[in-house]
C-alpha cells in the first residue's frame, strides 16, 4: 500500500527536489520494490496529464480575460522596432525617385542658365564675322531684349553670307520645315549648301530680296564700267601718242576700278530691321 508519505516522496522526485542520498535511496527502491515502481509510473503519468489539463484550463481562462481586457480599453498601438523588407524597399524606391526628380530639376535649371540676358554690345561696335560653318544654331530675328544674343547670331549668319557669296545669282533659299515656331531653311550659294534655323518666318524673303538687289546693283555697276571703258577707249584713241606716265597710271587705275566693284567685299553691317535695304554683293 502506497502511503501519503510515499506520495509526497514521489512528488519531490518529480519536482526534482531529491538530491544526494535521498535521490539514490529513491532510485534503488524503485528497482527493488515493484509496487512502489508502479506507483511512481502512475504518478508521473497523472502529473503529466494534470499539466496538460492545467495548460488547457489556463488557456481558456486567459481567452475569457483577453475578451474582457479588450473591452476595457484594448492594447497600446504598436511601433515596430525593425523595418520590414517591404518598408525598406519603399524607402529605397522613395530615395531613388527623389534623386531622379532632383536630377531632372537640376538638369533643366542648368540648361536654362545660358539663356539669361547677356551683356548687350553697343550697336556701333563692329564684330568680326566668323568663318562660315554648317550650323543648326537657331537664328532668332525677333528684336526683343531677351533675344539679343540670338539676334547677334542671326546678324553673324548674314555677315557670313555677305563675306562669302561670290556670285549672288547662285543664291537660293527655301523653307524645309517648321516646328514649335522654329523654321528650318536650306540655303545655297556658289558651291556651298547649308541648313540653318530661325524663328523669323520671313528671313527667306529678306535674303532673297537682298540677293536680287545685289544682282541688280552689280548689273548697274557693270553697265557703268562698260560706259567708262568705252569713253576711255575713245579718249586713248584720240590722244594715244601724248599719253604721259601719269595719265597711263590713271588709266590703269580706272581700268582696275570696275574690278574692285565686282568683288565680294561686304558692305558695313546693318541692323537686322534694315537688312533688306541693301544686299552687299
Amino acid at each position: 500500500m502506497i502511503s501519503e508519505k510515499d506520495i509526497a516522496l514521489i512528488d519531490a522526485f518529480i519536482a526534482g527536489d531529491l538530491i544526494g542520498n535521498d535521490k539514490t535511496d529513491f532510485e534503488s527502491r524503485v528497482k527493488k520494490d515493484l509496487e512502489f515502481a508502479k506507483a511512481v509510473r502512475q504518478q508521473i503519468h497523472a502529473v503529466e496529464h494534470l499539466e496538460i489539463m492545467g495548460a488547457v484550463t489556463m488557456g481558456k481562462s486567459l481567452r475569457r480575460d483577453m475578451q474582457q481586457w479588450k473591452s476595457e480599453g484594448g492594447y497600446q498601438p504598436y511601433q515596430p522596432e525593425l523595418m520590414g523588407k517591404g518598408m525598406m524597399t519603399k524607402v529605397i524606391a522613395g530615395i531613388v525617385l527623389l534623386a531622379v526628380v532632383g536630377g531632372v530639376i537640376w538638369y533643366f535649371f542648368m540648361k536654362e542658365e545660358p539663356t539669361k540676358p547677356a551683356p548687350v554690345k553697343p550697336e556701333t561696335e563692329e564684330t568680326v564675322a566668323p568663318e562660315p560653318t554648317p550650323t543648326t544654331d537657331v537664328i532668332d530675328t525677333i528684336t526683343t531684349t531677351e533675344s539679343l544674343v540670338e539676334l547677334k547670331t542671326s546678324e553673324e549668319q548674314i555677315a557670313d553670307m555677305q563675306l562669302n557669296v561670290k556670285d549672288p545669282t547662285t543664291f537660293s533659299i527655301h523653307e524645309i520645315s517648321e516646328e514649335d515656331g522654329i523654321y528650318t531653311y536650306e540655303i545655297a550659294y556658289d558651291d556651298y549648301v547649308d541648313v540653318f534655323q530661325s524663328r523669323d518666318p520671313d528671313i527667306d524673303d529678306v535674303l532673297m530680296e537682298m540677293a536680287e538687289q545685289a544682282i541688280s546693283d552689280n548689273q548697274k555697276v557693270n553697265e557703268e564700267n562698260k560706259a567708262r571703258n568705252n569713253a576711255a577707249k575713245q579718249q586713248s584713241v584720240q590722244s594715244a601718242p601724248t599719253n604721259t606716265p601719269t595719265q597711263k597710271k590713271a588709266e590703269v587705275e580706272q581700268k582696275a576700278e570696275p574690278k574692285k566693284k565686282t568683288t565680294t567685299q561686304p558692305k558695313p553691317r546693318r541692323k537686322q530691321q534694315k537688312v533688306d535695304d541693301d544686299f552687299p554683293y
Binding site: 488557456g59 486567459l62 481567452r63 480575460d65 483577453m66 481586457w69 480599453g73 484594448g74 492594447y75 497600446q76 498601438p77 504598436y78 515596430p80 520590414g84
Partner: peptide, 28 residues
Amino acid sequence: YTDYFGMVRNLVVKNSGSETDAEDVFQD
C-alpha cells in the same frame, strides 16, 4: 496584454494571419 498584444497582432496579421489567429498565438 496591453503592452504586447499589438506586437503579436502585427506579427500575425502581417504574416498571413487573422485577428483570431493573433489571439490564439498570444494565449498559447
